[in-house]
Simulated scan of single mutants.
Amino acid sequence: MISQMKKLYDKYQELIAYAFWGVATTIVNVAVFAALHLCTSWNYIINASIAWFLSVLFSYLTNKAYVFHSPSKSLRSDFIEMVSFFGGRIATLLLEFVMLWIGITLMHQNQILVKILENLVVIAINYFWSKLLVFNHKKQAK
């Protein structure tokens, strides 16, 4: 039983780490948003933007170190990797807005249900973007 669980863990270690750090990223996002809301009189869009930026930076650092184990080769390569990571997150943020607009405004569906479904799509795209394009060791070795 324990050896079977270890095999499963070994097989899905990357996905487990991605899920764990994804939850931590969500906590960072909500905590920063809440702290800014409570401590400033700024507009919620500003608070959300700062929270998004800091949580994506946190996500980049944790994905690099603990999910995809991407070594730092140079400041330049790390910068390119980070720009690619942020670029993917910006693209999926825009996709999120479009999916919410279609689901809520055009289709008149339940906002929470649309948000949950949209999040599942965005999480999957972010994972594959990171795995295949940002932290792809084979691509970087060439």
Rank of each mutant, 00 (worst) to 15 (best):
Q109T: 11
S49A: 01
I45R: 03
F97V: 09
L106F: 09
W101E: 00
A65C: 11
L38N: 13
F79A: 15
R89D: 03
L54Y: 05
V56N: 01
C39Q: 13
S77A: 14
A48T: 04
L57Q: 03
V98R: 08
K73S: 13
I80V: 15
D78K: 08
N43D: 07
T92Y: 05
N47S: 02
G103Q: 09
N43F: 07
I46H: 02
T105P: 06
E96S: 09
P71N: 11
F68P: 08
A51H: 03
L54T: 01
W52E: 01
H69W: 11
T40D: 00
N43H: 08
R76H: 13
L95F: 02
A91T: 08
I80E: 14
I50M: 02
W52V: 12
T92V: 03
S49P: 01
L57W: 09
T105F: 05
A91R: 06
V83Q: 14
F68N: 02
F79T: 14
V56R: 01
T62I: 10
H108M: 12
I90D: 04
W52P: 08
L36F: 10
V98D: 05
N63Q: 10
I45M: 08
L54W: 08
R76I: 11
T105G: 07
C39N: 13
L95W: 09
S59I: 02
M82R: 06
R76P: 07
I45W: 06
A48D: 02
I46L: 10
N47P: 11
S55G: 04
S70D: 08
M99F: 10
V83R: 14
M99S: 01
L93G: 07
I45K: 10
S49E: 01
W52N: 00
T40G: 00
S74I: 07
A35Q: 03
W101V: 01
K64D: 06
H69G: 01
A65V: 10
S77P: 12
F79Y: 13
V56K: 04
N63M: 07
S49D: 04
S55T: 00
V67G: 05
F79V: 14
F58S: 04
L38V: 12
S74P: 03
Y60N: 09
R89T: 00
I104A: 12
D78E: 14
F86P: 06
T62Q: 08
F53G: 06
K73C: 10
L36N: 03
L106G: 02
T105E: 12
S41T: 13
H108Q: 13
I80S: 12
H69T: 12
P71D: 04
M107Y: 15
F97W: 12
L75S: 14
Y60T: 03
L94I: 11
S77R: 13
F79I: 15
W101T: 05
L106T: 08
I90V: 13
S59W: 00
V67K: 04
F58Q: 04
R89G: 05
S55M: 07
S77F: 10
K64S: 11
C39M: 15
